[in-house]
Each structure stands twice: as C-alpha cells, then as structure tokens.
C-alpha cells in the first residue's frame, strides 16, 4: 500500500475550522475501524467521504456527534471538545444535524411533528413559530403538501427530504449525511441530491458519506478517501477523480467508474 502524504490544498482554511478530529482511534472488538484519523473541516466546506464498504467512513461520520464513541483522540466542534455524555452532549448534538441512511423519521409522529419536535422540546421554541418554520422548511425540500401524513405514507425520497428538514429545523452548524441515498430507489436519488446540492450552494458545512460520485464531483470542496479505517487520500474532487495518487484509490475508482 503506497503511503501518500495527505494534501491540504483544498478549500480548507484551518483558521476557520469548524470540526476538528485529531488522532481518533476506535475498535469494534478486534477490528480497528478508525486508525489515527485526522480531519479538519472548515466552516462552509463540503467534504465528501468515499471508500469501499467497511472502510470506516460511516463510523467516522457517526463519531462527529458521538453516536459512536471513540477509544482515543479528540473531536471538537466550533472550538468545543465533544462532551462525554449527558445534557452537555445533547446540547452539542442539537447543533450538528444528522441524516441517516434509513431516514429514521419518528414513525408515530406526522411529518410536521417530526420537524417541530426538536424545536419545541430542545430549542424551547413556541409551537406556532416552530410550525411556521417547519412548513417553510418542508416547502423548501419540496414536501410541504405531505405535512399532515405519517412517514410510512411517504416514498423513500420524500422521507429522506423530511429527515433533512428535521435536521435543518435545529439550525445546525454542520450537517452530517450518512449514506443518505443508499436506501433509495434509483429514481428518488436525484430529488434528495438536489436538496443537498442546494444546501451546499447556500453555504452549509457538510460532511457527506456517499457512493454518489456525481455529487462528489459537483458539490464537494474536498474528497476524503478512506480505506481500512484510515484516511488514505484527500484532494479536490477534480484532482481526485482524474488523478488519484494512492493505489488504493486508483483501484477503488477503477471498480466504480467503469463507464
């Protein structure tokens, strides 16, 4: 395996770092899923994390809001180290939006309630205001007409867009996307990607774990390539896709970009 020095030539300006992972390690039993991971994400930056399955990219994404604990190393968001647990951690999580592969909309709540719940319970916004904001967000992601329905009555693409609205309702500083289109039927992938593209254009800081190379090319400021729990290569998307430097990345791209 060729060792490639990690380049910092992308848009990342360390001066305005929003998310900083330093020397993060994690094991699942004997499996070393994250190995000495260093990653800095600047405010407004869109970082796409790609890599073969089992490379630790989802785990990396989930450590950023501590849905996964780490064994060693440090993670800080907006200058504050991630608290271990309790109310402090809950407060910090409210500032970090998360979109899951399997949507995870609250099954017993309507679409509107899904988007207002966090505002009301966590941000203590009053109901009227929360509903107003929720409806605006639902309109923005194109599912305003579904507000009174339950998640199970929506298509996968609609559910995922509601999930994005739910995360946005908390006014997050950064949005994490953990394979947001992997559970979707092909014809629904684009409607979700379009919402994400728009979000990226609006200047949201985003960490996106995905297999959508088109999205990586068009929306990312930086591509992070992971394999075997390590960040193997970081580069601007045009550089990465046209001229990957590590053998591991070349091998990966040759398998997925065959047409």
């Amino acid at each position: 395996m060729s060792e490639v020095s990690v380049t910092k030539d992308a848009a990342a300006a360390p001066a305005d770092a929003l998310v900083v992972l330093h020397n993060v390690n994690k094991h699942f039993g004997a499996l070393h899923v994250l190995q000495d991971v260093d990653l800095t994400i600047a405010r407004g930056e869109v970082v796409v994390v790609i890599g073969p399955s089992g490379s630790g990219k989802s785990t990396l994404c989930r450590t950023i809001n501590r849905l996964e604990t780490t064994d060693s190393g440090s993670i800080s968001i907006d200058g504050k180290p991630l608290p271990q647990e309790g109310k402090e951690l809950a407060r910090l999580r409210a500032d970090v939006g998360m979109v899951f592969q399997s949507f995870n909309l609250f099954a017993h709540k309507t679409v509107l309630e899904n988007v207002t719940l966090g505002q009301i319970k966590v941000r203590k916004t009053d109901r009227k205001q929360a509903e107003q904001k929720a409806r605006a967000l639902l309109d923005r992601v194109g599912v305003g007409a579904q507000a009174e329905k339950y998640p199970a009555q929506l298509s996968g693409g609609q559910q995922q867009r509601v999930a994005i609205a739910r995360a946005l309702a908390m006014d997050p500083k950064v949005m994490l996307f953990d394979e947001p289109t992997s559970a979707l039927d092909p014809e629904m992938i684009n409607e979700v990607l379009e919402v994400m593209q728009q979000l990226a254009r609006d200047g949201m800081t985003m960490v996106v774990v995905t297999h959508e190379m088109g999205f990586a090319r068009s929306a990312a400021n930086r591509v992070v390539f992971m394999a075997d729990g390590r960040i193997v290569e970081e580069a601007r998307p045009d550089q990465f896709f046209s001229n990957p430097r590590s053998d591991r990345a070349k091998d990966f791209l040759s398998k997925i970009l065959h047409h």
Partner: peptide, 27 residues
C-alpha cells in the same frame, strides 16, 4: 423499536428522558 429511532432523537439534541418519553416509549 428500531435503534435508529432513538439515534435520530439523540441526533437532534434530545436528552435520554426526552428520547425515552417522546420517541421510544410511545412506540
């Protein structure tokens, strides 16, 4: 109750008791 329900609740900043009371127990 799928574990993702609780994860989603935690990810929007709900505390343990909110997650349990609002999301997990009703289901």
């Amino acid at each position: 109750v799928p574990v993702g329900q609780a994860e989603a609740a935690r990810s929007i900043g709900m505390t343990f008791s909110q997650t349990l009371g609002q999301i997990v127990l009703p289901q």
